[in-house]
């Protein structure tokens, strides 16, 4: 029986997520034994023709060219899985969505007329049907392996959508907010990183995006009670997943408060 064909594609991104596949090290040979790596430029210059059984897509859509390319990739694959904050939420580059992209072009490039960029950086799912979104900046290589194995074994992947708090409590981490008043996005952020930052006594930065029922308004209210300014709250919500709806809505609401209330 022929092995399932795997393709990996990149859009606007840093490559970190697709490198998680190569980062599997110990498991990599086993993966290579169960899938045929058919199109993965980071790993091999050999490209097998489509169709593909499963395609991993990294990065966000930022140009008209991206928009055309993702349609074609969708047509060439049975299963499409997006990986990382860029592909699932627009990434850190979605910060431009609050500004005028032409201003950046004029400022950065000697010949801005050569640049053909969209006003917004947006997730892949804004353009095509996505079968599974794997969160993270970067993704967890273990979660990537779980998603691939689940796909190969024809079962639902064990990728929880609850908060980072579950991982902290499971690991035995004391809460950084309660025990030393460090602001933490963990309660509204999806698990998956293994509660990396709180394990080192730091607050969560929200790398895995909003959890399943993120109550960002309540947490932001608590941040305010802890002494954070609206500007600080906006900045905390506008990171790698700034454009994800739950984070975006609350950061917009808080920004509007700054505009009404002046400097703070």
């Amino acid at each position: 029986m022929a092995l399932p064909k795997l393709a990996v594609h990149k859009f606007a991104s840093c490559d970190g997520c697709q490198l998680s596949l190569l980062d599997l090290e110990e498991e990599l040979l086993a993966v290579a034994g169960v899938v045929q790596i058919a199109n993965f430029m980071e790993a091999s210059r050999e490209v097998l023709p489509p169709p593909y059984d499963v395609t991993l897509v990294e990065g966000s859509v930022t140009t008209p060219h991206d928009r055309r390319r993702i349609m074609q990739i969708r047509d060439e694959t049975t299963v499409l899985i997006t990986i990382g904050a860029c592909a699932t939420a627009g990434g850190i580059q979605a910060l431009r969505n609050w500004r005028d992209v032409d201003d950046f072009n004029n400022y950065v490039y000697a010949h801005p007329e050569f640049i053909d960029a969209l006003q917004e950086s947006t997730p892949i799912s804004d353009y095509v049907k996505v079968d599974f979104e794997l969160r993270g900046c970067p993704i967890s290589k273990y979660q990537l392996l779980e998603v691939l194995v689940a796909f190969l074994q024809g079962r639902r992947p064990n990728i929880p959508t609850y908060s980072v708090c579950v991982e902290c409590k499971t690991k035995g981490n004391p809460c950084v907010m309660v025990s030393h008043g460090t602001p933490c996005l963990g309660p509204i952020t999806q698990a998956g990183c293994g509660a990396l930052c709180p394990s080192y006594d730091r607050g969560c930065y929200g790398c895995f995006g909003p959890m399943e029922s993120a109550n960002a308004a309540s947490l932001a209210g608590h941040f305010e009670w802890m002494g954070l300014s609206n500007r600080e709250i906006v900045n905390s919500l506008r990171g790698f997943n700034a454009w994800a709806e739950a984070f975006r809505k609350e950061s917009d609401r808080r920004e509007a408060l700054i505009e009404i209330g002046g400097a703070r």
């Binding site: 908060s163 409590k169 309660p187 399943e212 309540s218």
Partner: peptide
């Protein structure tokens, strides 16, 4: 519910 984060902390402690 407006205050509750659904973060699970109460149940896990």
């Amino acid at each position: 519910a407006k205050r509750c984060l659904s973060c699970t902390n109460c149940t896990l402690v």
